[in-house]
Simulated assay, not measured.
Amino acid sequence: MARPARRIEISPAADELLRELEISPYTHPKVRLRVSILRLHRLGWSIPQLSNHFGRNHQAVHNDLTRFEARGIPGLADECPPGQPRRVTPEMEQFLHEKLREPHFWNATLLCEALQEKFQLLIGPRALSNHLRRLGYSWKRARYSPAKKLDPEIAQQHQVSLETLKRGHWTANSP
């Protein structure tokens, strides 16, 4: 005895939304394919007919129908892949915040070395700078600035030599 045909009820309002998604040029092609499968299923097409028409196997068509049943129209879009787990923990983020509050010049390479010393975490400077950007930090080019005030006598000596250079009278024996 054959298995009974699977039928999903789609309301006219949902069908109107599906129709808009199907003709929209901004809809992802995979979503548009799933929408077409649902709309034709609503018109009475069987799963074998749908799989032959779209060149997909029966299980893929069943999966599309199941996704719609479980989550509705939002379920037609693919979810973001999970990716790799986060390597920088909240404890490490706190450590980074503390380091960046110090009156010390930090760049991504130095922060990577500090993380490796304290947490034995191998992370590249590019990955760390991306993570710092997500935390709200921005990078700016470092500027040279004097660490302390110059001694007035030394500044005067250099000023005299600069004046000599400006006049063009420099010699190896000049002061």
Rank of each mutant, 00 (worst) to 15 (best):
T164L: 14
A14E: 15
T27D: 10
L17M: 14
R71T: 15
T171V: 04
G72I: 06
L100M: 09
H97S: 02
G124F: 00
F119D: 00
R101W: 01
D78K: 03
N52V: 05
S174T: 15
I8L: 13
E153W: 05
L43W: 06
P12M: 07
A172R: 11
K148H: 14
E79K: 12
G44F: 08
G124H: 05
F119A: 00
M92Q: 01
H28K: 15
R32T: 10
P29E: 14
H158G: 12
F105K: 12
N173R: 12
A155Q: 13
R71S: 15
D78L: 04
L110I: 01
L96K: 00
I154G: 01
P48Y: 08
P81R: 15
E69K: 10
L165C: 08
H97R: 14
R6S: 09
S174L: 10
S174I: 07
A5Y: 01
Q157M: 11
A2N: 12
G124C: 04
D64K: 01
A108P: 01
D64G: 05
T27R: 05
R39C: 06
R34N: 08
T27W: 10
P125C: 04
L128A: 01
H104F: 11
H53A: 11
R71A: 15
Y137F: 15
L76D: 03
Q116A: 12
D78M: 04
T66R: 15
R167N: 11
K166E: 13
P146M: 10
E9F: 09
L18A: 06
I73E: 02
L128Y: 00
L132A: 02
Q94E: 14
C112H: 01
M1N: 09
R87H: 01
Q84Y: 07
L121K: 01
E22H: 15
E16L: 13
H62P: 00
H62G: 05
W170S: 09
G168Q: 07
A2S: 10
K149N: 11
L21W: 04
L76I: 03
R87S: 02
N173G: 13
A60L: 08
H62T: 06
L76C: 05
D151E: 13
R19M: 09
P81V: 06
E20D: 13
K118V: 01
F54T: 05
T171E: 13
Q84P: 06
I37T: 11
E93A: 02
A127M: 03
L96C: 00
Q94A: 15
L21Y: 05
L135G: 00
K149G: 07
R87T: 01
R141V: 06
G75Y: 06
I37R: 05
A172Y: 11
E117S: 10
N130Q: 13
A2Q: 11
Q59W: 07
W45S: 14
A155F: 03
Q159I: 03
